[in-house]
Design a protein around this nucleic acid. Structure first.
Lengths: 247, 247
DNA sequence: CGGACATTTGATACTTTTCAATATTCGTGG
DNA sequence: CCACGAATATTGAAAAGTATCAAATGTCCG
């Protein structure tokens, strides 16, 4: 049984990297994709007065598992992980979130999982109480939040099939295709993974060695190409697709 | 790799076992626990006119994975499973729902998982389109739906930790305690499980033999008692609790 | 260019799955 | 009410897949 404790740079949230009273939304890159989309100018302005912009460095944790739910946020950019752990330090990543996603637990006292930046990231952070109140007064916002939560639930349940029923090979293949869909490749077709091998293992419910072996094997058979620690090129997506089930 | 196809009595939904235009809500046993709670009499009446009561027999499937999302429903009584499968027949149960729970995918075109009755069950069934419209016009209902979906998501994510990181013993112990919390024991302290060994395995992401072996071992050590196929008595809940993590 | 850290690779151990009987449960009909 | 039989569950033995432990190699940052 693995006993791993992450002693990484888990510094607490810094004291407001940059507040943005008023100036935030007009030039916000996710304003048309986050839950704020659909609010009229006045409402969005009101919402922006509740929130503040915060910058995170890779490794920083914003919310802790089992902690009070004091804040919620929109992700402006960067990638973050949602994670839960057993008492003896085994970790399971239960979600990876990207720009325009919503994080935190509205309408509830506790955050059931931790939220940690995988890359440098920027958030639009709201005190939960104020956000809850605002959402209650704005049906459209609440509707978008519901839509998003329903989608999250669907995706999470699909991932349960992977965790409970897929082999190591299928897990890794599914993961790589998922990353290919979510992240943009550079000119050479290389994707820069925001997760280390350990974190990939924590997403897939397996170990770092197993992930490594599967990737090496896929490289050997020409399905993918590995470049450096974080780079992957999906050489043959069709073959990769085939590996996601049976084989 | 397991190749199992359930040829069980998967008859289609019967043509309205019992419609309930108007008479439904007054004496509904879940009216104060389902999402309808909080609606005033007029609104609840309006909602009831959209829905109809349906009786299901154990084994019947109401919604299919990947199928059109045409209906949603409240569970009046009984237990149902939500499941997804791989193309080659491996199944993962992604949720078990009980009286007062809500099922189906509102505000979406497809049902991402199947819904099948584990016991005889009664539903209050709504055409999705009508339900969506009603929910959009009733913020309170939508809020309760959001609350419920957020709770579902939290529970689902907690289960991911079990699927990805727990051992067979921990899985079975966690499952039994969960059933103990949700189901009421009879006078002898015996719980009647709504799931077969195979279904338990499908919930836990393991096999029928492993579930059986773990339970037998727990019986041998006096932690639980097995009575018949479906009966369990949680003799020593504290010991069971201890088995849910490490040990 | 050195060195810390991440990843890969190798060998072995262990848990769980798989395959194969055997036993039990429980509904049905005599 | 008991006997039968199909479905379900348990048990056993062997095989497979992963995890674990240990070492070597590679990467990237000062």
């Amino acid at each position: 049984m693995e006993m791993r404790f992450d002693m990484a740079q888990n510094g607490a949230l810094p004291p407001v990297a940059r507040s943005c009273g008023g100036q935030s939304c007009e030039n916000c890159v996710v304003r048309d994709h986050a839950i704020c989309a659909g609010l009229d100018d006045a409402d969005r302005d009101a919402l922006s007065r509740i929130g503040r912009r915060v910058t995170l460095q890779a490794g920083q944790t914003v919310m802790w598992e089992g902690g009070d739910s004091t804040v919620v946020a929109n992700v402006i950019d960067g990638t973050l992980k949602l994670a839960t752990s057993t008492g003896d330090g085994r970790e399971q990543i239960v979600g990876v979130v990207y720009a325009a996603d919503f994080i935190g637990r509205p309408f509830g006292a506790r955050t059931p999982h931790s939220v940690t930046a995988l890359t440098d990231a920027r958030l639009c952070l709201f005190p939960r109480g104020s956000f809850d109140g605002f959402a209650l007064r704005h049906g459209e916002l609440q509707h978008r939040l519901l839509q998003r939560t329903l989608d999250d639930l669907d995706r999470t349940r699909a991932w349960m099939l992977l965790l409970g029923r897929k082999t190591a090979r299928e897990k890794v293949a599914t993961f790589l295709l998922d990353m290919g869909r979510r992240l943009r490749a550079d000119a050479d077709g290389v994707i820069d993974l925001p997760l280390s091998r350990q974190q990939i293992a924590d997403v897939l419910g397996t170990t770092i060695e197993t992930v490594s072996r599967q990737m090496t094997e896929m490289k050997r058979t020409g399905v993918i190409d590995l470049v450096g620690r974080r780079g992957v090129r999906l050489v043959d997506s069709a073959a990769l697709e085939a590996l996601t089930e049976a084989g």
